[in-house]
């Protein structure tokens, strides 16, 4: 904005750079220590520079103990499918709540939204019991269904918030042209909602990817186990710990969520709710 001179811009850049540095410090720690050997880490100080790069050894250690790639692929599958389905279902519901003629809009909204309110830890036992009765325990479908269901409320919230800011006149004129409700949903609402959909995808994919709770409780085999639950198996018995390998695993496991952010970052620049009511 024009009120700011070059000087104040410089000050702001310097301040931001300082905070950036602070924000990055922990990563510096991770990078320096993630490439050390186990003994090098244990016997030295964390600020000592690594004597060599032991990534391969550490990766070998990880792979000896867990099936890293299998967990990685599982989580990719869960993240992609559950998030897509959740966005689809949530957008349909959000469309109905904001643009169609239904009674009790707030009721329906709150009903679905309430799914995000309860502490998820308390879902473990009921869902576990349900799953062991219908044979979904330790299955990919089971985890997919849970993740989809739990992603819906937040997506509904974001999408409805956007949908109700879409001007009513657009809908009316499309109706005059004889467009069906579903056509309006596809060609107006979904088309305009690229940015919020990208946001939902980013947030929910990250959430599914990082979930530990449901992965731990609802899976027991490497075939169904998501990445974070696999990683938790790296924690050794009391007092033993291969910190460098764990750090390396943490970095490797965080690549997809970061990558998705980089990809979606651009699409945030297309239309987001801007009018306030």
């Amino acid at each position: 904005m024009k009120t700011y001179t070059e000087n104040s811009r410089k000050t702001i850049t310097i301040l931001l750079s300082f905070f950036c540095f602070l924000w990055f410090l922990p990563f510096l720690y991770v990078v320096i220590n993630g490439v050390k050997t186990r003994k090098e880490y244990n016997l030295g100080e964390f600020w000592d520079l690594p004597k060599g790069i032991s990534i391969l050894e550490n990766y070998e250690y990880i792979n000896d103990r867990i099936d890293f790639m299998m967990g990685f692929m599982n989580s990719l599958l869960y993240g992609a499918i559950a998030t897509t389905l959740a966005i689809l279902f949530a957008s349909l519901a959000a469309y109905a709540i904001s643009a169609l003629k239904i009674k009790g809009k707030m009721f329906w909204f709150m009903l679905i939204y309430s799914g995000t309110i309860f502490p998820f830890q308390m879902y473990i036992i009921p869902i576990f019991r349900m799953y062991s009765n219908v044979d979904l325990y330790d299955s990919k479908i089971g985890l997919l269904a849970v993740y989809t269901a739990l992603c819906i409320p937040f997506c509904l919230f974001v999408l409805r918030n956007y949908f109700y800011s879409i001007p009513k006149e657009l809908v009316e004129s499309a109706k005059m042209d004889g467009a069906s409700d579903f056509k309006i949903y596809v060609s107006i609402f979904m088309k305009m909602a690229k940015a919020p959909i990208a946001a939902c995808f980013l947030f929910q994919f990250t959430w599914v990817w990082n979930d530990l709770l449901f992965g731990l409780t609802l899976s027991k085999s490497a075939e169904a186990r998501p990445i974070m639950s696999s990683l938790s198996l790296l924690n050794g018995a009391s007092g033993t710990n291969d910190v460098p390998s764990a750090l390396l695993a943490a970095i490797l496991a965080s690549i997809p969520t970061f990558f998705i952010f980089l990809v979606l970052n651009k699409s945030f620049n297309y239309g987001f709710p801007t009018t306030s009511k």
Partner: peptide, 14 residues
């Protein structure tokens, strides 16, 4: 989805 659930239900790897 409920159909989907039933269809692929017993497919657990253990």
């Amino acid at each position: 989805t409920s159909l989907l659930l039933v269809a692929c239900g017993g497919n657990n790897g253990s």
